[in-house]
Design a protein around this nucleic acid. Structure first.
Length: 266
DNA sequence: ATGGTTGTGGAACAA
């Protein structure tokens, strides 16, 4: 089974890029973030034509928004509002995998603004609150150990030294500050989640899934960050087959600033 | 330290 996560930065503007990726990678499930599309305007028909009959969406007008597209039917869909805000940052779908339920969480964590200090930047406070709520909720569901779980999405944090182009220069830049990194690690450890990227690629190796629009030549300067993640619970570790970041998609016409991240399970 | 770009929606805000 192949799962792709991708911050598409407007699903309507880039529906052709979704089709292009789907044609090349043929994933069974696609998790999108930043769809920037209200539910009643979601391009469900186009998605169906690509072979994804099952569509779960949590969108709002203008900003944020997540969607999970699947060839495999969902047995259940859950939407949780974090920080008491209906801002389209989470959707959980449950499906059958290997004769047992598989819970798939699709997240879009707040970016957190520019200043890494909640006293002067409430967006950063929101990001920290969101992560704390993730930790609380994911820990709460820990009892049901029989359920296989995958968590994907744009978590807007690059946790490790080689998840950014310059650890030293980004220590005070939101997405790589010690406070966020520590909190994300707490979230990950709360459920013994396995960071799939680092299960396949050594920690010393640079790994990015996002390159800013603001650089002259993203490819040459290569100042990226690994903001997009795939985590699995230990129950799924034996099923891990391969992991890949589709870097080429950053060079497509009118690209998203994020690229697809791919997991293959046996 | 600053400025650099893109999206939505038609100004200002989010990233």
């Amino acid at each position: 089974m192949r799962i792709v996560t991708w911050n598409i930065n407007s699903v309507r503007l880039r529906i052709e890029l979704v089709a292009k990726m789907a044609k090349k990678l043929k994933p069974d499930i696609i998790c999108l973030q930043e769809t920037k599309c209200p539910n009643d305007s979601f391009p469900t028909k186009s998605i169906n034509k690509m072979g994804y009959e099952h569509v779960a969406i949590n969108g709002i007008k203008g900003y944020h928004g997540v969607a999970t597209l699947s060839k495999i039917p969902f047995t259940k869909t859950n939407i949780i509002d974090y920080c008491g805000q209906k801002d389209g940052r989470h959707i959980e779908t449950i499906l059958d995998y290997g004769g047992a339920p598989l819970s798939l969480h699709n997240f879009y964590v707040p970016a957190g603004g520019d200043e890494p200090d909640r006293k002067i930047n409430e967006k950063f406070g929101h990001k920290l609150d969101f992560l704390n709520e993730m930790k609380r909720r994911l820990t709460k569901s820990k009892q049901k150990t029989s359920v296989q779980r995958i968590l994907v999405g744009d978590l807007n944090i690059a946790p490790y030294e080689h998840d950014v182009w310059s650890h030293k220069q980004l220590l005070k830049v939101v997405s790589h500050t010690p406070q966020e990194v520590e909190l994300l690690e707490q979230v990950r450890k709360s459920h013994n989640w396995v960071d799939v990227a680092r299960a396949f690629v050594p920690f010393e190796e640079k790994l990015y899934s996002w390159w800013s629009y603001r650089s002259k030549d993203w490819d040459a300067s290569n100042r990226g960050r690994r903001l997009d993640h795939i985590w699995v619970t230990p129950a799924l570790e034996p099923q891990l087959k391969s992991y890949k970041i589709m870097r080429e998609a950053r060079g497509w016409e009118r690209p998203s600033d994020h690229v697809p991240v791919v997991l293959d399970l046996v």
